[in-house]
Design a protein around this nucleic acid. Structure first.
Length: 427
RNA sequence: GGAAGGGUGGCAGAGCGGCCGAAUGCACCGGUCUUGAAAACCGGCGAUGGGAAACCAUCCGUGGGUUCAAAUCCCACCCCUUCCGCCA
Protein backbone atom coordinates (compact mmCIF):
# COMPACT_ATOMS: atom_id res chain seq x y z
CA UNK A 1 0.00 0.00 0.00
CA UNK A 2 1.28 3.42 -0.85
CA UNK A 3 1.45 6.18 1.70
CA UNK A 4 -1.64 8.35 1.78
CA UNK A 5 0.21 11.56 2.48
CA UNK A 6 2.69 10.79 -0.27
CA UNK A 7 -0.21 10.27 -2.63
CA UNK A 8 -1.10 13.94 -2.26
CA UNK A 9 2.36 15.34 -1.74
CA UNK A 10 4.21 13.43 -4.46
CA UNK A 11 1.42 12.59 -6.84
CA UNK A 12 3.45 13.15 -10.01
CA UNK A 13 6.52 11.31 -8.77
CA UNK A 14 4.55 8.26 -7.70
CA UNK A 15 2.56 8.25 -10.89
CA UNK A 16 5.78 8.22 -12.86
CA UNK A 17 7.18 5.35 -10.77
CA UNK A 18 3.96 3.40 -11.23
CA UNK A 19 3.76 4.09 -14.93
CA UNK A 20 7.03 2.19 -15.40
CA UNK A 21 5.07 -0.97 -14.65
CA UNK A 22 2.94 -0.28 -17.71
CA UNK A 23 0.56 2.42 -18.76
CA UNK A 24 -2.52 0.43 -17.67
CA UNK A 25 -1.51 0.94 -14.06
CA UNK A 26 -2.13 4.69 -14.25
CA UNK A 27 -4.58 5.16 -17.13
CA UNK A 28 -8.10 6.53 -16.69
CA UNK A 29 -9.59 3.17 -15.76
CA UNK A 30 -7.03 2.42 -13.12
CA UNK A 31 -7.27 2.42 -9.36
CA UNK A 32 -4.66 5.14 -9.48
CA UNK A 33 -7.04 7.47 -11.33
CA UNK A 34 -9.77 6.83 -8.80
CA UNK A 35 -7.77 7.07 -5.70
CA UNK A 36 -6.87 10.74 -5.71
CA UNK A 37 -10.44 11.73 -6.39
CA UNK A 38 -11.75 9.47 -3.65
CA UNK A 39 -9.22 10.78 -1.21
CA UNK A 40 -10.45 14.35 -1.66
CA UNK A 41 -14.10 13.36 -1.44
CA UNK A 42 -13.55 11.28 1.65
CA UNK A 43 -11.80 14.08 3.50
CA UNK A 44 -14.47 16.59 2.54
CA UNK A 45 -17.24 14.40 3.90
CA UNK A 46 -15.30 13.57 6.96
CA UNK A 47 -14.62 17.19 7.84
CA UNK A 48 -18.29 17.98 7.47
CA UNK A 49 -19.29 15.03 9.58
CA UNK A 50 -16.75 15.85 12.26
CA UNK A 51 -17.98 19.41 12.57
CA UNK A 52 -21.43 18.13 13.43
CA UNK A 53 -20.06 15.57 15.80
CA UNK A 54 -18.07 18.24 17.60
CA UNK A 55 -21.26 20.24 18.03
CA UNK A 56 -23.12 17.23 19.34
CA UNK A 57 -20.35 16.36 21.76
CA UNK A 58 -20.21 19.90 23.05
CA UNK A 59 -23.92 20.17 23.75
CA UNK A 60 -24.17 16.66 25.15
CA UNK A 61 -21.52 17.56 27.65
CA UNK A 62 -23.49 20.67 28.57
CA UNK A 63 -26.63 18.59 29.08
CA UNK A 64 -24.75 16.32 31.37
CA UNK A 65 -23.52 19.25 33.41
CA UNK A 66 -26.93 20.87 33.63
CA UNK A 67 -28.59 17.64 34.69
CA UNK A 68 -25.91 17.05 37.21
CA UNK A 69 -26.66 20.46 38.70
CA UNK A 70 -30.37 19.70 38.75
CA UNK A 71 -31.19 22.13 35.94
CA UNK A 72 -33.58 21.66 33.02
CA UNK A 73 -31.96 20.72 29.72
CA UNK A 74 -34.91 19.77 27.59
CA UNK A 75 -34.33 22.59 25.10
CA UNK A 76 -30.82 21.37 24.35
CA UNK A 77 -31.94 17.79 24.15
CA UNK A 78 -34.61 18.63 21.59
CA UNK A 79 -32.15 20.62 19.51
CA UNK A 80 -29.66 17.80 19.46
CA UNK A 81 -32.15 15.30 18.11
CA UNK A 82 -31.88 16.83 14.67
CA UNK A 83 -28.14 17.22 14.81
CA UNK A 84 -27.71 13.61 15.82
CA UNK A 85 -29.75 12.41 12.88
CA UNK A 86 -27.89 14.54 10.37
CA UNK A 87 -24.57 13.62 11.87
CA UNK A 88 -25.29 9.92 11.59
CA UNK A 89 -26.21 10.31 7.95
CA UNK A 90 -23.06 12.21 7.13
CA UNK A 91 -20.99 9.74 9.05
CA UNK A 92 -22.38 6.90 6.96
CA UNK A 93 -21.51 8.76 3.78
CA UNK A 94 -18.02 9.49 5.03
CA UNK A 95 -17.52 5.84 5.88
CA UNK A 96 -18.68 4.72 2.47
CA UNK A 97 -16.26 7.14 0.88
CA UNK A 98 -13.50 5.84 3.09
CA UNK A 99 -14.29 2.26 2.12
CA UNK A 100 -14.23 3.15 -1.57
CA UNK A 101 -10.94 4.91 -1.13
CA UNK A 102 -9.35 2.03 0.75
CA UNK A 103 -10.55 -0.48 -1.80
CA UNK A 104 -8.96 1.52 -4.60
CA UNK A 105 -5.77 1.98 -2.61
CA UNK A 106 -5.36 -1.78 -2.17
CA UNK A 107 -5.38 -2.24 -5.94
CA UNK A 108 -2.37 -0.01 -6.48
CA UNK A 109 0.97 -1.81 -6.86
CA UNK A 110 4.17 -0.82 -5.13
CA UNK A 111 5.98 2.01 -6.96
CA UNK A 112 9.25 0.62 -8.30
CA UNK A 113 12.59 1.48 -6.82
CA UNK A 114 14.63 3.85 -9.01
CA UNK A 115 17.34 1.24 -9.45
CA UNK A 116 15.03 -1.21 -11.25
CA UNK A 117 16.13 -1.51 -14.89
CA UNK A 118 13.88 -0.54 -17.80
CA UNK A 119 12.25 -3.17 -19.94
CA UNK A 120 9.05 -4.38 -21.52
CA UNK A 121 9.14 -8.11 -20.75
CA UNK A 122 11.11 -10.74 -18.87
CA UNK A 123 13.55 -10.76 -21.78
CA UNK A 124 14.82 -7.43 -20.51
CA UNK A 125 15.80 -8.75 -17.10
CA UNK A 126 19.42 -8.01 -16.37
CA UNK A 127 21.92 -10.73 -15.56
CA UNK A 128 23.96 -9.76 -12.51
CA UNK A 129 26.23 -12.75 -12.03
CA UNK A 130 26.82 -16.44 -12.78
CA UNK A 131 28.13 -19.22 -10.59
CA UNK A 132 29.34 -22.67 -11.58
CA UNK A 133 29.87 -24.31 -14.93
CA UNK A 134 26.74 -25.45 -16.76
CA UNK A 135 26.95 -28.92 -18.27
CA UNK A 136 26.26 -28.85 -21.98
CA UNK A 137 25.99 -32.56 -22.85
CA UNK A 138 22.64 -34.13 -23.64
CA UNK A 139 20.66 -34.83 -20.48
CA UNK A 140 17.11 -36.22 -20.51
CA UNK A 141 14.33 -34.16 -18.90
CA UNK A 142 13.79 -34.82 -15.20
CA UNK A 143 10.45 -36.49 -15.83
CA UNK A 144 12.17 -39.19 -17.86
CA UNK A 145 14.95 -39.56 -15.33
CA UNK A 146 12.43 -39.79 -12.48
CA UNK A 147 10.12 -42.26 -14.21
CA UNK A 148 13.02 -44.46 -15.35
CA UNK A 149 14.32 -44.57 -11.80
CA UNK A 150 10.84 -45.34 -10.53
CA UNK A 151 10.82 -42.38 -8.14
CA UNK A 152 8.36 -39.97 -9.82
CA UNK A 153 4.79 -41.08 -10.57
CA UNK A 154 2.79 -38.56 -12.54
CA UNK A 155 -0.12 -40.89 -13.24
CA UNK A 156 -0.69 -41.51 -9.58
CA UNK A 157 -0.71 -37.78 -8.90
CA UNK A 158 -3.26 -37.20 -11.65
CA UNK A 159 -5.45 -40.03 -10.37
CA UNK A 160 -5.43 -38.79 -6.81
CA UNK A 161 -5.85 -35.08 -7.39
CA UNK A 162 -5.61 -34.04 -11.04
CA UNK A 163 -3.07 -32.53 -13.36
CA UNK A 164 -0.08 -30.74 -11.87
CA UNK A 165 0.06 -33.13 -8.93
CA UNK A 166 2.78 -35.74 -8.55
CA UNK A 167 3.58 -38.66 -6.30
CA UNK A 168 7.20 -39.10 -5.28
CA UNK A 169 8.55 -42.46 -4.19
CA UNK A 170 11.66 -43.82 -2.56
CA UNK A 171 14.73 -41.71 -3.19
CA UNK A 172 12.71 -38.76 -4.56
CA UNK A 173 10.47 -38.61 -1.51
CA UNK A 174 13.52 -38.94 0.69
CA UNK A 175 15.34 -36.21 -1.21
CA UNK A 176 12.36 -33.85 -0.94
CA UNK A 177 12.59 -34.24 2.82
CA UNK A 178 16.39 -34.06 2.83
CA UNK A 179 16.35 -30.78 0.91
CA UNK A 180 13.96 -29.16 3.38
CA UNK A 181 16.05 -30.25 6.33
CA UNK A 182 19.32 -29.22 4.78
CA UNK A 183 18.03 -25.76 3.84
CA UNK A 184 16.45 -25.06 7.20
CA UNK A 185 19.58 -26.17 9.02
CA UNK A 186 21.75 -23.97 6.83
CA UNK A 187 19.65 -20.86 7.40
CA UNK A 188 19.03 -21.45 11.07
CA UNK A 189 22.55 -22.54 12.03
CA UNK A 190 24.77 -20.62 9.62
CA UNK A 191 22.76 -17.59 8.57
CA UNK A 192 21.19 -16.72 11.90
CA UNK A 193 17.52 -17.13 11.04
CA UNK A 194 14.92 -18.12 13.60
CA UNK A 195 13.01 -21.10 12.30
CA UNK A 196 9.23 -20.93 12.56
CA UNK A 197 6.50 -23.36 11.73
CA UNK A 198 3.23 -21.79 10.68
CA UNK A 199 -0.27 -22.65 9.42
CA UNK A 200 -0.69 -23.39 5.71
CA UNK A 201 -4.08 -21.71 5.81
CA UNK A 202 -4.61 -17.98 6.18
CA UNK A 203 -7.66 -15.73 6.43
CA UNK A 204 -8.47 -12.84 4.09
CA UNK A 205 -7.02 -10.17 6.33
CA UNK A 206 -3.71 -11.95 6.39
CA UNK A 207 -3.81 -12.49 2.63
CA UNK A 208 -4.49 -8.77 2.17
CA UNK A 209 -1.60 -7.84 4.43
CA UNK A 210 1.03 -9.26 2.11
CA UNK A 211 -0.79 -8.30 -1.10
CA UNK A 212 -2.30 -11.57 -2.39
CA UNK A 213 -5.77 -10.08 -1.91
CA UNK A 214 -7.86 -8.44 -3.13
CA UNK A 215 -6.33 -8.45 -6.59
CA UNK A 216 -5.13 -12.02 -7.01
CA UNK A 217 -7.97 -14.04 -5.55
CA UNK A 218 -8.05 -16.19 -8.72
CA UNK A 219 -4.58 -17.52 -7.98
CA UNK A 220 -5.61 -18.85 -4.57
CA UNK A 221 -7.43 -21.93 -3.35
CA UNK A 222 -10.28 -20.80 -1.12
CA UNK A 223 -11.91 -23.10 1.38
CA UNK A 224 -15.61 -23.43 0.85
CA UNK A 225 -17.85 -21.54 3.25
CA UNK A 226 -14.97 -20.19 5.30
CA UNK A 227 -12.83 -17.11 5.38
CA UNK A 228 -9.77 -19.24 4.70
CA UNK A 229 -7.30 -19.79 1.89
CA UNK A 230 -4.43 -22.18 1.27
CA UNK A 231 -1.22 -20.19 1.36
CA UNK A 232 0.65 -19.72 -1.94
CA UNK A 233 3.90 -19.10 -0.04
CA UNK A 234 5.17 -19.01 3.54
CA UNK A 235 5.69 -15.29 3.04
CA UNK A 236 2.02 -14.85 3.92
CA UNK A 237 1.89 -16.36 7.41
CA UNK A 238 5.47 -15.54 8.37
CA UNK A 239 5.34 -11.84 7.48
CA UNK A 240 1.91 -11.56 9.08
CA UNK A 241 3.31 -12.91 12.32
CA UNK A 242 3.77 -9.21 13.04
CA UNK A 243 0.52 -7.82 11.67
CA UNK A 244 -0.82 -4.93 13.77
CA UNK A 245 2.24 -5.02 15.99
CA UNK A 246 4.51 -2.17 16.99
CA UNK A 247 8.09 -3.39 17.29
CA UNK A 248 10.98 -1.61 18.95
CA UNK A 249 13.66 -0.58 16.49
CA UNK A 250 16.12 -2.46 18.69
CA UNK A 251 14.33 -5.75 17.89
CA UNK A 252 14.96 -5.33 14.17
CA UNK A 253 15.82 -6.92 11.93
CA UNK A 254 13.67 -10.00 12.51
CA UNK A 255 14.79 -12.90 10.35
CA UNK A 256 12.75 -16.05 9.96
CA UNK A 257 13.04 -19.15 7.87
CA UNK A 258 10.13 -21.51 7.44
CA UNK A 259 9.21 -24.59 5.55
CA UNK A 260 5.63 -24.80 4.27
CA UNK A 261 3.74 -26.47 1.50
CA UNK A 262 2.52 -23.92 -1.07
CA UNK A 263 -0.68 -24.04 -3.08
CA UNK A 264 -1.31 -22.19 -6.32
CA UNK A 265 -4.13 -22.49 -8.80
CA UNK A 266 -1.85 -21.47 -11.69
CA UNK A 267 -4.93 -19.94 -13.28
CA UNK A 268 -3.10 -18.13 -16.06
CA UNK A 269 -0.51 -20.82 -16.74
CA UNK A 270 -2.40 -23.24 -18.96
CA UNK A 271 0.04 -25.01 -21.24
CA UNK A 272 3.19 -23.87 -19.49
CA UNK A 273 5.50 -26.49 -18.01
CA UNK A 274 2.80 -29.12 -18.25
CA UNK A 275 5.22 -31.99 -17.93
CA UNK A 276 7.28 -32.68 -14.87
CA UNK A 277 7.26 -31.03 -11.49
CA UNK A 278 8.39 -27.52 -12.39
CA UNK A 279 4.89 -26.10 -12.03
CA UNK A 280 2.66 -27.90 -9.55
CA UNK A 281 -0.49 -26.91 -7.69
CA UNK A 282 1.19 -28.02 -4.49
CA UNK A 283 4.90 -27.74 -3.80
CA UNK A 284 7.30 -27.42 -0.93
CA UNK A 285 9.38 -24.36 -0.23
CA UNK A 286 11.71 -22.99 2.39
CA UNK A 287 11.21 -19.26 2.68
CA UNK A 288 13.32 -16.46 4.15
CA UNK A 289 11.60 -13.39 5.62
CA UNK A 290 13.08 -10.21 7.05
CA UNK A 291 11.29 -7.47 8.95
CA UNK A 292 13.58 -4.47 8.96
CA UNK A 293 13.85 -0.70 8.68
CA UNK A 294 13.43 1.28 5.45
CA UNK A 295 17.05 2.47 5.73
CA UNK A 296 18.54 -0.97 5.51
CA UNK A 297 16.04 -2.71 3.30
CA UNK A 298 18.22 -2.65 0.19
CA UNK A 299 21.35 -3.94 1.89
CA UNK A 300 19.18 -6.61 3.52
CA UNK A 301 18.00 -7.66 0.07
CA UNK A 302 21.60 -8.29 -0.95
CA UNK A 303 22.17 -10.37 2.19
CA UNK A 304 18.98 -12.33 1.85
CA UNK A 305 19.75 -13.11 -1.78
CA UNK A 306 23.23 -14.26 -0.79
CA UNK A 307 21.67 -16.62 1.77
CA UNK A 308 19.54 -18.18 -0.96
CA UNK A 309 22.57 -18.42 -3.26
CA UNK A 310 24.46 -20.25 -0.54
CA UNK A 311 22.02 -23.14 -0.88
CA UNK A 312 22.70 -23.52 -4.59
CA UNK A 313 26.43 -23.30 -4.04
CA UNK A 314 26.34 -25.94 -1.33
CA UNK A 315 24.41 -28.22 -3.67
CA UNK A 316 26.92 -27.42 -6.43
CA UNK A 317 24.18 -26.36 -8.82
CA UNK A 318 25.17 -23.81 -11.49
CA UNK A 319 22.96 -20.74 -11.44
CA UNK A 320 22.74 -17.12 -12.33
CA UNK A 321 21.33 -14.08 -10.58
CA UNK A 322 19.16 -11.71 -12.56
CA UNK A 323 17.50 -8.47 -11.62
CA UNK A 324 13.93 -8.21 -12.83
CA UNK A 325 13.17 -5.30 -15.13
CA UNK A 326 10.28 -2.98 -14.44
CA UNK A 327 7.85 -5.02 -16.54
CA UNK A 328 8.48 -8.19 -14.54
CA UNK A 329 8.57 -7.06 -10.90
CA UNK A 330 5.59 -8.37 -8.92
CA UNK A 331 2.70 -6.30 -7.59
CA UNK A 332 3.92 -5.89 -4.02
CA UNK A 333 7.64 -5.71 -4.74
CA UNK A 334 9.74 -2.61 -5.30
CA UNK A 335 12.82 -4.55 -6.45
CA UNK A 336 13.42 -8.23 -7.16
CA UNK A 337 16.32 -10.59 -7.87
CA UNK A 338 15.61 -14.00 -9.31
CA UNK A 339 17.98 -16.90 -8.95
CA UNK A 340 17.86 -19.23 -11.93
CA UNK A 341 19.32 -22.71 -11.80
CA UNK A 342 20.82 -24.45 -14.81
CA UNK A 343 18.63 -27.19 -16.27
CA UNK A 344 20.71 -29.12 -18.81
CA UNK A 345 17.71 -30.83 -20.43
CA UNK A 346 16.25 -27.44 -21.34
CA UNK A 347 19.65 -25.91 -21.96
CA UNK A 348 18.70 -22.80 -20.00
CA UNK A 349 18.42 -21.27 -16.57
CA UNK A 350 15.07 -21.59 -14.77
CA UNK A 351 13.78 -19.65 -11.78
CA UNK A 352 14.33 -21.38 -8.46
CA UNK A 353 14.20 -18.40 -6.10
CA UNK A 354 12.74 -14.94 -6.11
CA UNK A 355 14.06 -12.42 -3.59
CA UNK A 356 12.20 -9.17 -3.17
CA UNK A 357 12.22 -5.98 -1.20
CA UNK A 358 8.77 -4.62 -0.49
CA UNK A 359 9.87 -1.41 1.15
CA UNK A 360 7.10 -0.31 3.50
CA UNK A 361 4.36 -1.53 1.16
CA UNK A 362 3.46 -4.63 3.14
CA UNK A 363 4.22 -2.90 6.42
CA UNK A 364 1.45 -0.40 5.72
CA UNK A 365 -1.01 -3.03 4.56
CA UNK A 366 -0.42 -5.42 7.40
CA UNK A 367 0.02 -2.79 10.11
CA UNK A 368 3.56 -3.92 10.86
CA UNK A 369 5.23 -0.97 12.50
CA UNK A 370 8.32 -0.12 14.48
CA UNK A 371 9.34 2.71 16.72
CA UNK A 372 12.71 4.34 17.22
CA UNK A 373 13.51 5.25 20.80
CA UNK A 374 11.08 8.02 21.74
CA UNK A 375 9.84 8.31 18.16
CA UNK A 376 6.52 7.77 16.41
CA UNK A 377 5.53 4.40 15.02
CA UNK A 378 6.17 3.98 11.31
CA UNK A 379 5.62 1.16 8.86
CA UNK A 380 8.37 -1.47 8.91
CA UNK A 381 10.08 -2.68 5.76
CA UNK A 382 9.77 -6.30 4.69
CA UNK A 383 11.66 -8.65 2.42
CA UNK A 384 11.44 -12.25 1.47
CA UNK A 385 12.93 -14.81 -0.82
CA UNK A 386 12.77 -18.49 -1.56
CA UNK A 387 15.58 -20.34 0.00
CA UNK A 388 14.72 -22.42 -2.09
CA UNK A 389 11.81 -23.98 -3.93
CA UNK A 390 12.25 -27.65 -3.05
CA UNK A 391 10.62 -29.30 -6.06
CA UNK A 392 12.57 -27.29 -8.57
CA UNK A 393 15.69 -27.96 -6.59
CA UNK A 394 15.02 -31.67 -6.87
CA UNK A 395 14.62 -31.27 -10.62
CA UNK A 396 18.00 -29.53 -10.78
CA UNK A 397 19.68 -32.23 -8.72
CA UNK A 398 18.23 -34.98 -10.91
CA UNK A 399 19.32 -33.34 -14.14
CA UNK A 400 22.67 -31.98 -13.08
CA UNK A 401 23.58 -35.20 -11.29
CA UNK A 402 22.42 -37.51 -14.06
CA UNK A 403 24.91 -40.05 -15.34
CA UNK A 404 24.81 -41.76 -18.70
CA UNK A 405 24.09 -45.11 -17.02
CA UNK A 406 20.78 -43.63 -15.82
CA UNK A 407 21.84 -43.13 -12.22
CA UNK A 408 21.92 -39.79 -10.39
CA UNK A 409 24.72 -38.57 -8.13
CA UNK A 410 23.54 -37.06 -4.87
CA UNK A 411 25.28 -33.83 -3.79
CA UNK A 412 27.60 -34.40 -0.87
CA UNK A 413 25.85 -32.08 1.59
CA UNK A 414 22.63 -33.99 1.05
CA UNK A 415 24.03 -37.44 1.66
CA UNK A 416 23.90 -37.32 5.48
CA UNK A 417 20.24 -36.39 5.18
CA UNK A 418 19.61 -39.41 2.94
CA UNK A 419 21.03 -42.09 5.16
CA UNK A 420 24.40 -41.93 3.47
CA UNK A 421 23.04 -42.63 -0.01
CA UNK A 422 25.47 -41.37 -2.66
CA UNK A 423 23.73 -42.30 -5.85
CA UNK A 424 20.22 -43.11 -7.01
CA UNK A 425 20.18 -46.21 -9.18
CA UNK A 426 17.33 -47.92 -11.04
CA UNK A 427 15.55 -50.58 -9.06
C1' G B 1 -20.75 -29.59 18.57
C1' G B 2 -22.76 -28.44 24.07
C1' A B 3 -21.97 -25.44 28.72
C1' A B 4 -19.64 -21.45 31.37
C1' G B 5 -16.39 -17.32 31.50
C1' G B 6 -13.91 -13.59 28.79
C1' G B 7 -12.05 -10.01 24.66
C1' U B 8 -10.04 -2.54 27.37
C1' G B 9 -3.39 1.24 25.90
C1' G B 10 3.57 -2.12 24.51
C1' C B 11 2.04 -5.80 28.62
C1' A B 12 -1.04 -6.84 33.04
C1' G B 13 -5.61 -5.11 34.75
C1' A B 14 -9.84 -1.68 36.88
C1' G B 15 -14.14 0.71 35.07
C1' C B 16 -20.16 -1.30 33.66
C1' G B 17 -24.99 5.41 30.85
C1' G B 18 -22.63 11.90 31.17
C1' C B 19 -16.94 14.31 35.32
C1' C B 20 -13.62 7.93 30.87
C1' G B 21 -9.08 8.03 25.90
C1' A B 22 -9.97 5.51 30.13
C1' A B 23 -7.67 4.18 37.38
C1' U B 24 -3.49 1.31 38.97
C1' G B 25 0.93 -1.61 38.25
C1' C B 26 4.91 -3.05 34.90
C1' A B 27 7.75 -1.47 30.75
C1' C B 28 9.67 2.96 28.47
C1' C B 29 11.62 8.35 28.42
C1' G B 30 13.44 12.83 31.27
C1' G B 31 15.05 14.68 36.09
C1' U B 32 16.74 14.54 41.53
C1' C B 33 19.99 11.69 44.60
C1' U B 34 24.82 8.69 43.67
C1' U B 35 31.98 8.26 42.08
C1' G B 36 28.88 5.10 38.68
C1' A B 37 24.81 1.82 38.61
C1' A B 38 20.62 -0.06 41.29
C1' A B 39 16.86 1.46 44.67
C1' A B 40 13.90 5.60 46.08
C1' C B 41 11.45 10.08 44.75
C1' C B 42 9.43 13.81 40.99
C1' G B 43 7.62 14.47 36.01
C1' G B 44 6.29 12.53 31.20
C1' C B 45 4.40 8.56 28.27
C1' G B 46 -1.60 5.12 23.35
C1' A B 47 -2.96 4.97 18.08
C1' U B 48 -5.19 6.91 13.58
C1' G B 49 -7.16 10.87 10.48
C1' G B 50 -7.59 16.34 9.54
C1' G B 51 -4.95 21.05 10.54
C1' A B 52 0.75 25.63 9.87
C1' A B 53 -0.85 25.60 14.83
C1' A B 54 -4.39 26.01 18.60
C1' C B 55 -7.27 22.27 18.35
C1' C B 56 -11.03 18.86 16.40
C1' A B 57 -12.68 13.89 15.31
C1' U B 58 -12.34 8.57 15.72
C1' C B 59 -10.74 4.08 18.33
C1' C B 60 -12.30 -0.13 24.82
C1' G B 61 -13.10 -7.79 19.53
C1' U B 62 -16.43 -6.68 14.73
C1' G B 63 -21.07 -4.92 12.84
C1' G B 64 -25.90 -3.00 13.87
C1' G B 65 -29.48 -0.75 17.51
C1' U B 66 -31.41 2.33 21.87
C1' U B 67 -30.16 7.48 23.76
C1' C B 68 -29.29 14.46 23.60
C1' A B 69 -25.03 11.23 25.39
C1' A B 70 -22.41 4.21 25.11
C1' A B 71 -16.16 0.99 27.05
C1' U B 72 -20.74 0.87 30.02
C1' C B 73 -27.63 -1.04 27.88
C1' C B 74 -29.85 -4.35 23.63
C1' C B 75 -29.11 -7.70 19.14
C1' A B 76 -26.01 -10.48 15.73
C1' C B 77 -21.35 -12.29 14.52
C1' C B 78 -16.02 -13.43 15.30
C1' C B 79 -12.16 -14.94 18.49
C1' C B 80 -9.93 -16.76 23.14
C1' U B 81 -9.97 -19.69 27.85
C1' U B 82 -11.96 -23.73 30.82
C1' C B 83 -15.06 -28.11 31.22
C1' C B 84 -17.81 -31.96 28.40
C1' G B 85 -18.18 -34.71 23.67
C1' C B 86 -15.32 -36.27 19.37
C1' C B 87 -10.57 -37.07 17.37
C1' A B 88 -4.84 -37.26 14.59
Amino acid sequence: MIDRQALRRDFEVMQAALARRGQHVVDEESAWAKVAKLDARQRELKTESETLQAERNRVSKLIGQKKGAGLDASAEMAAMGDVARKSKELDTQARDAEAAFSAALLEIPNPLHDSVPDGTSEDDNVEISRWGTPRLDAVPPHWDIGVDLGILDFEAGATLAGSRFTVMKGAAARMERALMQFMLDLHADKHGYEEVWVPAIANSKTMTGTGQLPKFADDLYKLEGEDAYLIPTAEVPVTNLYQDKILNASELPKRHCAYTPCFRREAGSAGRDERGIIRQHQFDKVELVHITTPERVLSDLEELTAHAEAVLQALELPYRKVELCCADVGFSSQKTYDLEVWLPSQNCYREISSCSSFGQFQGRRAGIRYREEGGKPQPAATLNGSGLAIGRCLVAVLENGWQSDGSVLIPQVLQPYMGGMQRITPR
